[in-house]
């Protein structure tokens, strides 16, 4: 192989490297791979409530089986998911909302107008908690146990099918009454 033919093959090699990189990106797709945090504790944080004057920390999430839902008003899928979250809340599932990189006023209006499925809403204005949780984009839903450990992460819309197939099998019977 002389220098000339090596030169024209160079773009091909660069392209193959690029494809490898893109493929690795695909493999890491949020929908496919569980979060690196599954099995770990919720990362430490201290953030204000969206609706009250309280401040929440990771300790506030201990004590019961519950969901953490990362949402935002700018996220179209969250709008689609919202009615199902209301259904879950009505069945007695405690859901903690993390309002992710949102405008607080918009978020409050959104909950006031469309109903609030959340027991508490943590305002993650800077997105730091979302970053710590490895959030790719809203909505994402985490299942945590009473010790504050993350058992499941679901990226994207939660609906009846996802709920029955992914979430319910992980929760011990009788935790949430009607919801099970």
């Amino acid at each position: 192989m002389n220098a000339k033919s090596l030169w024209v093959a160079l773009p091909l090699l660069a392209f193959l490297a690029l494809v490898g990189l893109l493929y690795s990106g695909l493999g890491k797709d949020p929908q496919k791979l569980p979060s690196a945090l599954v099995g770990k504790d919720v990362p430490a944080f201290s953030l204000p409530s969206l609706l009250t004057d309280e401040t929440f920390t990771e300790q506030s999430l201990h004590g019961r089986w519950q969901l953490i839902n990362v949402w935002a008003t700018w996220c179209p899928t969250c709008h689609i998911e919202h009615p199902y979250l209301l259904t879950l809340a009505a069945r007695g599932v405690p859901i903690v909302g993390i309002n992710y990189k949102d405008e607080a006023g918009l978020a409050r209006d959104y909950l006031a107008n469309r109903g609030n499925p959340f027991v508490q809403v943590i305002s993650d204005d800077s997105g730091q908690l979302g970053l710590d949780l490895g959030v790719y984009g809203a909505p994402e839903t985490f299942l945590i146990n009473p010790q504050g450990k993350i058992l499941l992460r679901h990226a994207g819309n939660v609906d009846e099918r996802v709920w029955n197939e992914e979430f319910l099998p992980l929760v011990p019977a009788g935790q949430w009454g009607k919801a099970q």
């Binding site: 024209v8 193959l16 494809v19 893109l22 797709d29 929908q31």
Partner: peptide, 26 residues
């Protein structure tokens, strides 16, 4: 909408089109 299946398809397509052309070029 994010969909890995679609992503994989386009990646394969990109490989065939751009990769094929670059092989020809090489």
């Amino acid at each position: 909408a994010n969909d890995p299946k679609r992503g994989l398809f386009i990646l394969v397509f990109l490989c065939v089109v751009a990769g094929g052309a670059l092989v020809l070029f090489a």
